[in-house]
Amino acid sequence: MTTAVRPARQARPTRPAWVEKPKPVTQAGKAVAIVVLLVLVLVPFLVIISTSLASNQEVVDNGGWVIWPAHPTTRAYRQILDGGIVTQALGVSVGVTLVGTLFSLACTTFLAYALSRPKVFGAKPVLMLILFTFLFPPGMIPAFLLVKGMGLLDNYAALIAPVLINVFNLVVLRGFFQGIPEELYEAARLDGAGDWQTLWRIVLPLSKAALAVVGLFYAVSYWNAWFHASIYMNSDHWPLQQVLRTYVIGGAQIADTGASEAGMVSAPQTTQMAVLVIATVPILIVYPFLQKYFTKGVLTGAIKS
């Protein structure tokens, strides 16, 4: 049975007839290159996750590193998620990501839709105005002075409003909306639908893939942001990435873990790695959903325009 199936599968012309069969050396070279790529990307993740799950003793015995924990424990996680700084920062990150993504996606969609329709009053100058910001960003100091002048210091709005719309995402969505056949708009209009109803009933349901990609892009960028938090927010309102920055890159101890004193404190290495993992996990969770759309040309089509 299997012998009958296998040759048939191999005979499937994945390689056109005119392509010569690659030399074994080439094949081996490619295999090595692929393995090297995979190892370079994946091994750091493996080590970080393993170390975060190891016991203190094991980490110390191994000179600070564990490739595979002998006795996995979630103690480092329980400790930092026990109501201390990391727990609070996690809450800030989740909140800013959810609210920010919602506002960003809504405003981007509205603007992209208006700019994608023909003969809209003011659409051309507005588009020029927006594309010009790409060429000449306002600069760090003026942006800071503006946020300060608006009284937004230490306000979570300072983490969202200044980065509300990303021009690239706007262009992606606008391109997608423009790709919807004009007949559908015409049909909606004949059915008596206004522009708002057309957006809601025709355009949005047809654009789920594009909206998902843009929404996930926004979510990832809100989750990963830390610079604005570092200049606008007091340290008790920091998101996770900024906490990670001070405690892992800066090397400070995680002072307030919420756990009881000295004896309980985990080896800094395991704790640091646990924070690192917590900051990374949401990305790993949404990643497969993002990945799904890359091949569909949602982005590449827009990049060209």
């Binding site: 208006a114 009053f121 003011g122 522009d195």
Partner: peptide, 12 residues
Amino acid sequence: SRTLVLLMLPGL
């Protein structure tokens, strides 16, 4: 196009 102009306003 006033609905669309209205939709444009937050982004603008």
